[in-house]
Design a protein around this nucleic acid. Structure first.
Lengths: 247, 247
DNA sequence: CGAAAACTTCCACCGCCGCGGAAGCGTTCG
DNA sequence: CGAACGCTTCCGCGGCGGTGGAAGTTTTCG
């Protein structure tokens, strides 16, 4: 009945730097060992163990014991969405980030957000789909149009197998670097999955960053009209996204 | 670049029982005075003042000074959505509430959630709209169909004035008592607003609870086919929602 | 103009919790 | 079978921060 203690309990768990670091590290959807999470949070194994026990107790993360390792992953997409929601508030009305570290550039360019793509790449894809009338998108929600369903089918995504009960739904997810909505939910997850399947994108080790392969650069341009500048030399492209577009 | 500290800062602010109580008290969208919030959080004015200063500093709440009172309201709908998201995680995989206090019954029956309706009433409305094909609804999102837009226009809601840029979007909001999605976002806000305008619902003083008037009981039945049992005697209705439907 | 009300600032108290070292337990190797 | 590894439990330390009392500031009312 009284909801405040429930909210305080969850938020209190997240509101601790070490635990927040662990949850953030798990935001890419992968399962990490207790040791890796301890390293990510910059604490010793005993401290990490205590934090992990608390997070697991509250069902924010799910343990997965394998041999002498203990893996942890986010308990559910809902937890990832909650973290997104907190992040959306955190970046609201806040001065823009001034420095751009090399690692931050990578993350800003393309990364994974639990199960879907985020960063410039994802926003560009969302823009393309919206421009062509394949999805309707704003900060409140997103919807795949009939034309969009056909287009996605051609790309290898069957919307009827994505959502078990309903079709056509995707979730609008506020990108915390671009501050603009992109496509999440089941459709976003399927889109990301298909990109990895096609070899267009590859996960970077121990990071949420995503690298676009040469095939991906070609594919994103031909299929979505999205041009990404290469790290070395940026060719003359129609719509260049990347570090050179930063202001 | 490193997002964990940002998340931890916001979550840490929310993760304090007194502050969580204040934010929860503001979840009905109204502005409350510092004294009222102190009472809601069960702390003395000095303590409340400190908490409010921190929440305002982080832009979670917005101060509104009027005479010798200082009013506070949630800074933005985004904050309300964040709290919803935390609540959705908090009630996830948790044993059902066993006791049902009289006040909890009222809240469960009908209440406001920032700017839209929540509780049994809202879920029943959402069910009606979904059953008639006026909206498509699941946990990821919601969409108003053309038929739905026409129906809502007849009810006095012009979707083109609701959303400034886009139309047809509403947000799916997980109800924390019913554990089912209902209609939020701009459409949900307009729906709630129209119910109050018609005199179908009335806010209870100093509570998020909403009372359905006699006119409302008639209107909800005729327009939406939703029958609400009266507090005193429940008549034979087609679809009874309320305490008697609890199991 | 003086008193009351609403809120804030200052201050000292203290309890909670994050922390790491040491030791214990289970697993996986050579 | 013993040693190394990964993780947990136990323990005492230390500090951050929530707390209310007292006093100060601003506004309203008689």
């Amino acid at each position: 009945m009284n909801t405040a203690p429930l909210i305080a309990e969850i938020a209190g768990l997240v509101g601790e730097p070490a635990r927040a670091s662990m949850l953030t590290a798990l935001l890419d959807g992968r399962a990490l060992t207790a040791g890796e999470l301890a390293y990510a949070a910059r604490v010793t194994p005993p401290t990490a163990s205590m934090h992990l026990a608390k997070l697991a107790e509250a069902r924010l993360i799910a343990p997965l014991k394998t041999g002498r390792h203990r893996y942890f992953r986010l308990a559910s997409p809902r937890v990832a969405q909650m973290l997104e929601g907190i992040m959306a508030v955190a970046i609201d009305e806040r001065p823009r980030y001034r420095p751009l570290s090399p690692l931050a550039r990578e993350l800003r360019s393309a990364r994974v957000c639990y199960d879907h793509l985020a960063g410039r790449l994802s926003v560009a894809l969302a823009d393309c789909l919206a421009r062509r009338g394949y999805v309707l998108l704003d900060e409140e929600g997103a919807e795949v149009t009939p034309n969009g369903a056909q287009f996605l089918a051609g790309f290898g995504i069957d919307l009827f197998t994505v959502g078990t009960r309903r079709r056509r739904f995707c979730r609008s997810c506020l990108d915390w670097t671009e501050r603009r909505p992109h496509i999440g939910g089941a459709v976003g997850a399927a889109l990301a999955s298909r990109c990895f399947e096609l070899g267009w994108t590859e996960r970077k080790r121990d990071s949420r960053a995503v690298m676009v392969t040469a095939a991906g650069r070609k594919g994103f341009l031909e299929t979505f009209g999205v041009a990404l500048d290469e790290p070395s030399a940026a060719g003359p492209a129609q719509r260049v996204i990347g570090s050179s577009a930063a202001r």
